[in-house]
C-alpha cells in the first residue's frame, strides 16, 4: 500500500480541498465519472492484477498529492484533464507526436498522452501551470510572452514545459541545445521565429541573422 504513504503522511484530504483548486475540481469531476463498481486498490509487485474496474490512484501534480479513481487504461493526460481538471497540458495528436501534452515526470519531459496514469504514481508530475506562482511568472513563459512566441496558444504550454526542462537540466544551455529540446513539439500557427527570439533572450545570446 505504499502508494498511499505520501497521502497519509501529508496534509489531510480536507486541507487539500481548501488548498488546491485541483482537488476541489477533481472531486467534482470524479462525481461526473460515476464508476460502476467499487474502486480496487492498487497492489504493485504481486501477481494480482489491477482493474479493469476503476482504481483509486494518487498523483503528485505540481507539488501536491491529488486522488482520483480511474480505469487502468486512462492516460496521464486524460487523468489530468478529465479527472483532475488540470488542463494546461492539451490533447492534440494523442499519439506521442505533437508535444501539446508535454509534462515533466521527475524533471524529464514525456508525452502525457502516452503514459498510463497508473504508472505516474509516486512520481513528480509538473505541468505548465506550475510556472506561475503567487503572481510570479517563470522566466520561460515570460520570454514567450515578451517575444510573442504564441498565437492560438494551444501548443504553447507544451513548448514552455519542454523548454523549461532543458534549462532546468542545464541553465547554461546554448540556443541550439534549447532548440533541440523542442524537437518533439509542433506549432500550427507558426510561432517558431518568435520562439527563437525567446530562446536567445533566455540564453542571453544576441541573435544574428
Amino acid at each position: 500500500m505504499h502508494d498511499h504513504e505520501t497521502l497519509e503522511s501529508g496534509p489531510s484530504r480536507r486541507d487539500f480541498l481548501q488548498e488546491t483548486g485541483a482537488v476541489v475540481a477533481a472531486t467534482a469531476l470524479a462525481g461526473a465519472a460515476t464508476m460502476e463498481s467499487p474502486a480496487a486498490e492498487l497492489q504493485p509487485g504481486t501477481g494480482g492484477g489491477i482493474g479493469p474496474n476503476a482504481v483509486k490512484i494518487t498523483l503528485n501534480v505540481n507539488g501536491r498529492d491529488v486522488q482520483t479513481s480511474i480505469e487502468p487504461r486512462v492516460t496521464l493526460l486524460d487523468a489530468l484533464r478529465n479527472y483532475l481538471d488540470v488542463t494546461g497540458c492539451k490533447r492534440v495528436c494523442d499519439r506521442a507526436t505533437c508535444g501539446a501534452c508535454t509534462v515533466m515526470l521527475d524533471g524529464k519531459v514525456v508525452y502525457a498522452c502516452t503514459v498510463l496514469a497508473i504508472e505516474a504514481q509516486g512520481r513528480q508530475i509538473r505541468t505548465a501551470e506550475s510556472l506561475y506562482n503567487d503572481g510570479k511568472l517563470d522566466a520561460v513563459p515570460a520570454a514567450f510572452v515578451r517575444a510573442d512566441a504564441q498565437q492560438c496558444g494551444f501548443c504553447t504550454p507544451g513548448f514552455v514545459v519542454a523548454m523549461k526542462a532543458v534549462l532546468d537540466a542545464n541553465p547554461q544551455a546554448a540556443p541550439a541545445q534549447v532548440e533541440k529540446g523542442l524537437q518533439g513539439n509542433i506549432c500550427r500557427c507558426g510561432t517558431y521565429e518568435q520562439m527563437r527570439d525567446a530562446i536567445y533572450a533566455l540564453c542571453n545570446t544576441k541573435r544574428g541573422n
Partner: peptide, 19 residues
C-alpha cells in the same frame, strides 16, 4: 482503448509468469 487488467511485476521472472 479497450480496458485491461494491469499487472506490475517487480522481477523478470514474475513478469514471465504473467505472459
Amino acid at each position: 482503448m479497450k480496458n485491461f487488467t494491469y499487472f506490475r511485476p517487480t522481477t523478470p521472472e514474475q513478469a514471465v509468469t504473467l505472459l
